[in-house]
């Protein structure tokens, strides 16, 4: 009986601890979102979306940064996502057990969690240094490189979920292999693949480190891909570390905007994949 009581006690202690750390974790996370809303909403007004980033002490908004982020993120995804889908298709449909496929899978998993600042330096070396100037184009390439591994992974996973009999049935009808993949397998895996692209957008829309040495920053409006371009994360980085209250306020507002974007994208992705599994 003595032994049983001590076992019960140690179990109660450990389970209490795990409940405790969960509460602790949730409190911290609520704290982060709370401060973000509190400080971010204080500066949220129309000017944020209609005016350029101000000089220190001046009035202004985040228009050029928002536009820059939108432009570079969408271009990066347009370049990176199709490449990722093709590579994922190779892994799931053509290579599957080949040497090349297992090597690519291994490397892709490493790129998936490789430090993004290193990717920024890589793009600096291959684009910024030879051209002699920072450019939005380099930012786009850096983001595209970050998009690829995410999309490769989800595309492969989703194609592997498509039942083999579906492919066999299509092949038995005489469809060539590319049609089996594009018209049958892709269609069956569509929601999952879109989910992967959404997750990739969420991942790169907050990336700061790879943009610091590629697209740099720009205090003014720019639609020139061959020149430095402002982006929300880079502006947040610059403004938050500055001593000016106005700039810090804009940094909080920008942080709130990014977080809302990322959360919306992730919720959308979840909802998409949930609606797929319910069917």
């Amino acid at each position: 009986m003595e032994r049983f009581a001590s076992r019960r006690r140690s179990s109660a202690i450990m389970m209490g601890l795990s409940t405790g750390v969960t509460a602790f974790g949730l409190v911290f996370l609520a704290l982060i979102l709370g401060t973000l809303l509190w400080k971010g909403l204080a500066g949220l007004n129309l000017a944020v979306f209609t005016q350029m980033t101000p000089p220190p002490g001046g009035k202004g908004g985040l228009l050029n940064a928002i536009a820059g982020s939108l432009a570079m993120t969408s271009l990066g995804v347009i370049v990176g996502a199709p490449l990722g889908m093709l590579a994922g298709t190779y892994l799931a449909e053509y290579g599957r057990y080949s040497k090349l496929a297992s090597l690519v899978r291994f490397i892709n998993d490493i790129l998936l969690s490789a430090p993004s600042i290193v990717i920024g330096l890589f793009v600096y070396q291959i684009i910024v240094a030879p051209l002699g100037h920072f450019s939005a184009l380099a930012g786009v390439v850096a983001l595209a490189i970050l998009v690829v591994p995410v999309v490769v992974r989800t595309t492969e996973d989703m194609l592997l979920l498509v039942p083999a009999p579906l492919r066999e049935a299509a092949a038995a009808l005489g469809l060539p292999r590319s049609h089996v993949i594009l018209k049958v397998a892709f269609r069956a895996a569509r929601a999952g693949i879109i989910t992967g692209v959404l997750l990739a957008i969420a991942r790169v829309s907050g990336e700061t480190a790879p943009l610091l040495f590629t697209s740099l920053n720009n205090q003014f409006w720019s639609s020139n891909l061959n020149a430095p371009m402002a982006s929300l994360p880079a502006v947040i980085f610059q403004f938050a570390l500055s001593p000016y209250a106005d700039w810090q306020q804009l940094a909080w507002t920008g942080a709130l905007l990014i977080t809302l974007t990322v959360l919306t994208l992730s919720v959308l992705a979840r909802w998409l994949s949930a609606s797929r599994t319910n069917k």
Binding site: A202, G206, L263
Partner: peptide
């Protein structure tokens, strides 16, 4: 999935 810069700015302030 929240970007790391958010944790950074929160950590600083």
């Amino acid at each position: 999935g929240i970007p790391s810069i958010i944790y950074g700015i929160w950590g600083l302030f």
